[in-house]
Amino acid sequence: MRDTTSLLPLIVRDLRLERDGRVLLDVPIARIQNRQRNVILGPNGAGKSLFLKTCHGLVPPTSGSIEFTRPASAADNRRKQAMVFQKPVMLRRSVRANFMHALAMAGVGWRERRRIATETMAQFGLSSLADMPARVLSGGEQQRLAIARAASLWPDLLFLDEPTSSLDPTASRQIEDMLEILHERGVTLVLTTHDLGLARRFADVILFFHNGRLVEESNAERFFTAPQTPEAKAFLEHRLFW
């Protein structure tokens, strides 16, 4: 039923993003590995969100390339990835209609849409909210809806920008559980976070950004036990402010 061949890994080469003469991103090379949990760390203003958006194709880079290993049409590439934004975009409709809309945009037929929406809501504990206007949900519920909505598209690759920011510990926990489910399903996850606890528990790979540059890319265990760069060391010791 589903195309199981993956597009990944995603290879980023010589990526530069400049605006008004300022270099916002400078990434000579980065790899997003298949089925890995990639966590992007770095202080505020390090370019983490921008890197996600650029990889997802929302922000065109000034130069450089972002390529999937198995080249496909642009539309195919688009369909196999999804993104959850820091402030989740809630359509002014019911929770169910939010799912239906995303599925419609992905070209899913009407009957299928209903079925997938119902299934996904059940899977992520959103069924009781199905007919509520999405915008009256709490922050945690909105974030769960946003992630479940992205998940309903069955992407190979899912970008998440600060999925647990401004959530209470319970809500954060629920989000983490959802991410675990997606990981088990085989989805490649790329997320930014300020929550070092989440990063330690969850990450397979860490990409550490500082001042728009990808400073360190390494196995999570090694990053936390033996960071290779002074910036990363400083960051982990909460000494890196700028």
Binding site: L58, R78, R79, A82, M83, L91, R93, M105
Partner: peptide, 22 residues
């Protein structure tokens, strides 16, 4: 909505009905 709709692969033209309804 721009980021979300672009992420879903809806171009500007296909975004119009969504925006009008919302």
């Amino acid at each position: 909505y721009q980021d979300h709709l672009t992420s879903l692969g809806a171009g500007r033209l296909r975004s119009i009905p969504t925006l009008l309804w919302d």
